[in-house]
């Protein structure tokens, strides 16, 4: 349903996301998990067509979000993190307006409005001015506008942030229900939320996807990898098998940049392989030109996530 390839976005000289790839199948609930500032919102803004990526492409049901933007946008319902609402409109007035903007006929809006108000349980507040609603209800209105045109893809940016625990539970149940018929992409920095809601999780940190798995595997916490970047002076054909032979190394990729051989090593988390590698390199008579850990290990990222619910 959604296919993102090589997404990179710069704000001025600063990269917000770099080379992000992922796919979402129809009817799947995909979660973006990452600490604040990891690039979740940027990614969602690109998927919804709010801004184009600096590089890379996203297709939505086969439509490119930049080239065939209108067709792609027709298929998306979006709840931004700030829940933007016109505070001086009534709930129904607002929903009707959003429905019209999404190309619905007045008749379709009328029937759909009843359903949406019911699903989001806004019944008693139909005529209330949005500015007078509490934060939790505003959140529901935000979800209501995102689903009013029955989009195939629902993009929710931090849908449970800043509302009280009871409303959090309700909102999650609502998202779970919606996820039965629709493709949902949501972002969060709360670890348990992901395991409750999502079929699959992408962990994003400092603009890069660092892991992708089912919540179950992630919860077991055994899928972590450390990444090391090593530059070694020596024949690649001999170096590669040696590196791969180290215990705990899962994968080694090799880049030859004008005679500078750089190896990216993915190793199981928790064991520091730097000493082993340097000894092996020297022992084989090659030269070690650079050795560094790349990015944070999954464990460190998890530490920066909200790993429990704050009540």
């Amino acid at each position: 349903m959604i296919q993102a390839e090589g997404l990179t976005h710069y704000y001025g000289p600063y990269p917000a996301i770099q080379d992000v790839n992922f796919g979402v199948r129809k009817g799947e609930i995909l979660g973006f998990l990452g600490p604040n500032g990891a690039g979740k919102t940027t990614t969602m803004r690109i998927i919804t067509g709010f801004m184009p990526p600096t590089r890379g492409t996203v297709t939505l049901d086969g439509y490119d979000v930049v080239e065939q933007s209108l067709e792609a946008r027709r298929r998306v319902g979006y709840l931004p993190e700030t829940v933007p609402l016109y505070t001086d409109m009534s709930v129904t007035g607002y929903l009707k307006y959003m429905g019209t903007l999404r190309g619905m006929s007045p008749k379709a809006i009328k029937t759909r409005l009843v359903e949406v108000v019911d699903v989001c349980r806004l019944g008693d507040y139909r005529k209330t001015q949005i500015g007078k609603l509490s934060k939790g209800f505003r959140q529901r209105v935000g979800i209501a506008q995102a689903i009013i045109h029955e989009p195939q893809v629902l993009v929710l940016d931090e849908p449970t942030i800043g509302i009280d625990p009871i409303q959090v539970v309700e909102t999650r149940r609502l998202i779970k229900d919606l996820g039965r018929d629709q493709t949902v992409v949501l972002s969060t920095h709360i670890l348990p939320e992901v395991s409750m809601l999502c079929d699959r999780v992408l962990i994003i940190n400092e603009g890069r996807i660092v892991a992708e798995d089912t919540p179950k595997n992630l919860a077991e916490g055994l899928q972590g990898v450390d990444r090391l970047e090593v530059e070694i002076g020596g024949p690649a054909a001999e170096v590669l098998p040696v590196l791969k032979g180290i215990r705990g190394v899962n994968e080694v990729t090799h880049v030859n940049n004008d005679g500078r051989h750089t190896y990216t090593i993915q190793a199981q988390a928790g064991q520091d392989l730097r000493d082993t590698i340097s000894q092996l390199v020297i022992g084989n008579g090659w030269s070690l030109r650079g050795l560094q850990m790349v990015g944070m290990s999954l464990e460190e990222i998890f530490l920066r996530l909200t790993t429990h619910e704050e009540l």
Partner: peptide, 14 residues
């Protein structure tokens, strides 16, 4: 300012 532009520009509106 309100951020509603985000919804406006992600709606299928030219």
């Amino acid at each position: 300012k309100l951020g509603t532009i985000e919804l406006l520009l992600t709606s299928p509106v030219r």
